[in-house]
C-alpha cells in the first residue's frame, strides 16, 4: 500500500527526513512515533502529496508519486482518508456538511450522501450533533468529526496525525477503538503519534523516527 525508498526531505537546508525506506502492506495498521520535530507529520504529508520529496521514491496505493501528473493528485487523495492534526474543520458549515464535503467533491448524489454521512457519524457516535457547528463541539467531538470525514468515503488508506493529541484517556481509547474497527474492515491505517500508550502491547508494527532518521521498526 505504501512504499518509501531512500526518501529525503529538507526544509530550508534543515533535514526533516533522511534516507527513509519502509513499506506498509495492504490492510496493516502501523504506528509512526517519535518526539516533536522527528518528522512524523512530514512523513504523512509526503504520502498525501502535501509535500514532495527532495530525493527518493514513494508509492501510494499503486501510484508512483513522482510520476503523478498534477491533475491526478486529487484522484490519489480520494483514496486516502486523512485525520489532520489541526482538524481542518470548516466553521462556516455544520458537522453534516463538513463530513458531506468529501462526498460532494466526488460528485455523489444527495441521497447517497445522506446515507453515508449519517452512517459515518453514527460510527463515531455523533449522529445527534450533525446540525452543530464544529466550534460548538468539544475537542474530542471535533476529533471524531474529523475521523467521520476521513472514513465516510471508505478510503483504502487512513492517515491519522496525532489523533488523540490533547484528549483524555477515555476519549483516546474510544478513538483507537474506531481505528481498530476501520482496520478490521480492511482499510490500511497509519497513525502518527508521540503517545506510546496508544500502541503499547497492541502487537502492531511501529516505525520510530528520531530527528528525521528511521531508527527502529518493530512490533510492540
Amino acid at each position: 500500500m505504501i512504499e518509501f525508498f531512500d526518501v529525503t526531505k529538507e526544509y530550508n537546508n534543515q533535514t526533516a527526513l533522511r534516507n527513509i525506506t519502509f513499506s506498509i502492506e495492504k490492510g496493516e495498521m502501523v504506528f509512526v512515533t517519535g518526539t516533536s520535530g522527528s518528522g512524523k507529520t512530514t512523513l504523512l504529508k509526503l504520502i498525501y502529496l502535501a509535500e514532495k520529496p527532495d530525493k527518493g521514491e514513494i508509492s501510494v496505493a499503486g501510484w508512483e508519486t513522482e510520476k503523478l501528473k498534477e491533475s491526478s493528485i486529487p484522484l490519489l487523495r480520494r483514496n486516502v482518508g486523512i485525520v489532520f492534526q489541526d482538524f481542518r474543520l470548516l466553521n462556516n458549515r455544520n458537522v453534516f456538511e463538513n463530513v458531506a464535503l468529501v462526498l460532494r467533491i466526488r460528485n455523489m448524489n444527495e441521497k447517497d450522501i445522506r446515507t453515508k454521512v449519517y452512517h459515518s457519524l453514527k460510527t463515531v457516535n455523533l449522529r445527534h450533533k450533525s446540525d452543530s457547528v464544529p466550534e460548538a463541539l468539544s475537542g474530542g467531538e471535533q476529533q471524531r468529526v474529523v475521523i467521520a470525514r476521513a472514513i465516510v468515503a471508505e478510503p483504502t488508506l487512513l492517515l491519522a496525525d496525532e489523533p488523540t493529541g490533547n484528549l483524555d484517556v477515555d476519549t483516546a481509547a474510544g478513538i483507537m477503538r474506531i481505528f481498530n474497527e476501520i482496520n478490521a474492515k480492511g482499510t490500511t491505517v497509519l497513525i502518527a503519534t508521540h503517545n506510546r500508550e496508544l500502541f503499547k502491547n497492541t502487537g502492531r508494527r511501529v516505525l520510530r523516527l528520531d530527528s528525521g532518521n528511521l531508527v527502529g521498526e518493530e512490533a510492540e
Binding site: 498525501y48 502535501a50 491533475s71 486529487p74 484522484l75 487523495r77 480520494r78 486516502v80 486523512i82 489532520f84 481542518r88 470548516l90 462556516n92 464535503l101 468529501v102 467533491i105 466526488r106 470525514r149
Partner: peptide, 16 residues
C-alpha cells in the same frame, strides 16, 4: 484560502 486548502487536501479537483 484555508477552506480551499482543505478542499484540495480532501481531493477536490481544480474545477470543483
Amino acid at each position: 484560502k484555508e477552506e480551499i486548502e482543505t478542499f484540495k487536501l480532501l481531493g477536490a479537483s481544480k474545477g470543483f
